[in-house]
Design a protein around this nucleic acid. Structure first.
Lengths: 196, 196
DNA sequence: CATATAGTTCAAGACCGCTTGAACCGCACC
DNA sequence: GGTGCGGTTCAAGCGGTCTTGAACTATATG
């Protein structure tokens, strides 16, 4: 989510899932990789975190940092950092293939868990904060003697609204988690080889 | 939502609903205004759009652009653009007080409608796009002869997941709209004076 | 130990959206 | 017409994040 339809309208400029530079990738891979990049960015992560995960997931077998670097046309340092983040979040696993010295990385299905989890944390904290701010404002406002009750009421309505939105949001996260959990089964079932 | 807990952790640096420069505003106003600014930014709009709307809403009576400029410490040009956006979205109304030459602006309760509406549009378009991309990828992949079925399956699962998330999201928007609509009643009911 | 290659770190810079401020327009009033 | 003021526009600057690339560490090998 960057510049969408905001102020200017400017429709039709939808950021394309561009073939970009990943000329190395098969077209279908490229499209899927970019799509995941978009989603992940939308949810507040870095686009390239999504791209890396998608590549690893689609390939199925572990890749080296160098391969990722080439396939996605990223810098060495960038790949290192992206992998570290993904690994820390449990979205990617670092594996060592027997009689080989380099690290390889394979996708965990947990990108999904990671997203729901982090988003949940973030959203919850945020929403809580807003509520706290609004009740603080209300407390202060009530302390002001000469405040027209009408203005106080407006403030209260604002707070009420915030609470309702919070409820809706929590509900969304909960149902969404359930729904996703179902699909996770699908991710896990198949004969998805995973080095172990 | 800017830099939250992403890569670095860095907790406790929660962006405060700072007293900022709006020394002119009563503390409770300032807090509430900033809170709304945060929310609105979180949903993908400009922080200052939220601040302007909040100020107008809390004040109850129409303000001039100059007043807004001073109260929120914004630039002339900025206020003009912010008001234009808000007006276009129906979140603010431009009113002319009898025997006065300047325009004044008053808050519509429709900020809420605006947010749900725009967010809905945006989210829907986005999600649709992702789905389209993924099925395109799938179509292409199926056209490739020598593709291991396992890899194809992974792609398919990705698409399935996207569909599920889409469903959850649409559900959220729908229930959220209903919920918000309920509160809108509360916004409208009271003896909220509106120049007419 | 010297060399080479994988991996990490981080300052510098690219990039991008938001805000500013000055030029400009339009209207009222003298 | 001239002056003043509200309002608009937009190029330039600012502030933020993300990426790069070079220096650095770690590890294997001869």
């Amino acid at each position: 989510m960057k510049g969408y339809l905001w102020t200017g309208g400017d429709p039709g400029s939808q950021k394309t899932a561009a073939p970009l530079d990943n000329a190395r990738l098969a077209p279908w891979e490229s499209i899927a990789v970019e799509a995941v990049g978009n989603v992940i960015e939308f949810w507040g992560f870095k686009r390239n975190q999504g791209r890396v995960w998608a590549l690893l997931y689609l390939r199925g077998e572990p890749l080296t940092a160098g391969e990722i670097e080439r396939e996605l046309d990223l810098s060495k340092g960038g790949v290192s950092m992206l992998l570290r983040d993904l690994e820390r979040w449990g979205a990617v696993q670092r594996v060592r293939v027997p009689q080989d010295t380099v690290w390889r990385y394979s996708a965990e299905t947990d990108l999904v868990r990671m997203v729901t989890h982090v988003v949940e944390e973030r959203e919850a904290a945020f929403v809580t904060r807003i509520r706290a701010d609004l009740s603080e404002a209300r407390r202060l406002a009530e302390g002001v003697g000469s405040l027209p009750t009408e203005r106080l009421r407006r403030l209260e309505r604002m707070a009420t609204l915030a609470e309702h939105v919070e409820r809706a949001l929590r509900l969304f996260i909960k149902t969404s988690r359930l729904d996703v959990a179902g699909v996770l089964g699908a991710f896990r079932d198949g004969a998805l080889s995973r080095k172990g």
